[in-house]
């Protein structure tokens, strides 16, 4: 059991959680994830760690409500427990010393930049963060991210806040010399389509790009092989070798297709959860 210490709703579909997890907080590094299970008979899902506080013994997660499990977690509040939390898993993100690193976050992926940018800045890197969302109401954690990086750029699809356009377009301008200038390394975290767009943007100008893949996982500890991602034509296991891989080598077509393998079943599970929740509400 892992106790929830604090929750905060960030948007109608994303929620911030701070968990009492001293062992995980002590060893967590940027880019790593935890496996969660919320109930007996529940599935195990990977969630990338947004941030951690070693002294306080806490980790932060931002969860976007998409399926059955994330809906159940999103209903939890401070004082509630999560049945199983295991981690930190996966390999930490590593970048060459002293480089100018640009973190690119799309949607709830922006949350993961919190810990990454803070850690990189503390190590003496020059840090730029680009975060984006469809509109300003869906932007998350901009205020928290600001002190963690040297330059923060905000993008919205509709122009309601910051740059009007995609994060990849903003990144392209920086590579061309605008704003903080060309980064030595890009780390992209967010929806698969956004990470692919970022990798395509940096391919021509040859900017090293890591993408944090989010394949389906069952155990998350290097046993089932379900999370394999094709990288440079070779199968790599995201739970052990990843989840961050060279974005120019990842086969996004295969990854996106494989992530849709259980769409029908995921919908069925979500309907069951929603049904049970509305029935419970009626009883109250």
């Amino acid at each position: 059991m892992t106790r929830i210490l604090e929750t905060r709703r960030l948007t109608p579909v994303t929620k911030y959680f701070r968990l009492d997890a001293p062992l995980i907080a002590r060893s967590a590094m940027p880019g790593q994830f935890v496996m969660l299970r919320v109930r007996e008979g529940g599935e195990r899902i990977p969630i990338t760690i947004a941030d951690y506080d070693r002294k306080a013994g806490t980790i932060s997660l931002v969860i976007q409500q998409v399926g059955a499990t994330t809906t159940l977690i999103s209903a939890l509040e401070a004082g509630d427990d999560i049945l199983d939390v295991a981690g930190p898993l996966g390999s930490p993100i590593e970048v060459a010393a002293g480089a100018h690193v640009c973190g690119v976050g799309g949607g709830f992926g922006s949350a993961v930049l919190l810990g990454l940018m803070r850690e990189l800045k503390a190590k003496g890197h020059r840090t730029t963060a680009i975060i984006g969302a469809r509109n300003k109401d869906l932007l998350i954690l901009a205020d928290e991210l600001k002190p963690n990086c040297d330059h923060l750029a905000i993008c919205t699809d509709d122009g309601s806040s910051g740059f009007k356009g995609f994060v990849s377009q903003q990144l392209e301008r920086f590579i061309e010399g605008e704003g903080p200038g060309r980064p030595d390394c890009v780390v992209a975290i967010g929806p698969m389509a956004m990470m692919r767009a970022v990798a395509e943007t940096t391919r021509g100008p040859k900017v090293k790009t890591l993408v944090s893949m989010d394949p389906l996982m069952v155990d998350g500890t290097g046993m089932c092989g379900g999370c394999r991602v094709m990288v440079g034509g070779k199968a790599q296991f995201a739970c052990v070798e990843g989840p961050a891989f060279d974005g120019h080598e990842v086969d996004f077509d295969v990854a996106m297709r494989r992530n849709k393998a259980y769409v029908k079943e995921e919908k069925q599970s979500l309907e069951r959860v929603n049904c049970a929740r509305s029935a419970a509400k009626e009883v109250h």
Binding site: E43, R44, V218, M223, C224, G225, E265, S269
Partner: peptide, 23 residues
């Protein structure tokens, strides 16, 4: 892999989907 197949079924109880969440 057989590991994935068997883990879904045995550890996660996937043979009882949708009662259990892992398909």
């Amino acid at each position: 892999s057989a590991n994935e197949f068997l883990t879904r079924m045995n550890l996660m109880g996937g043979y009882k989907f949708p009662e259990n969440d892992t398909p």
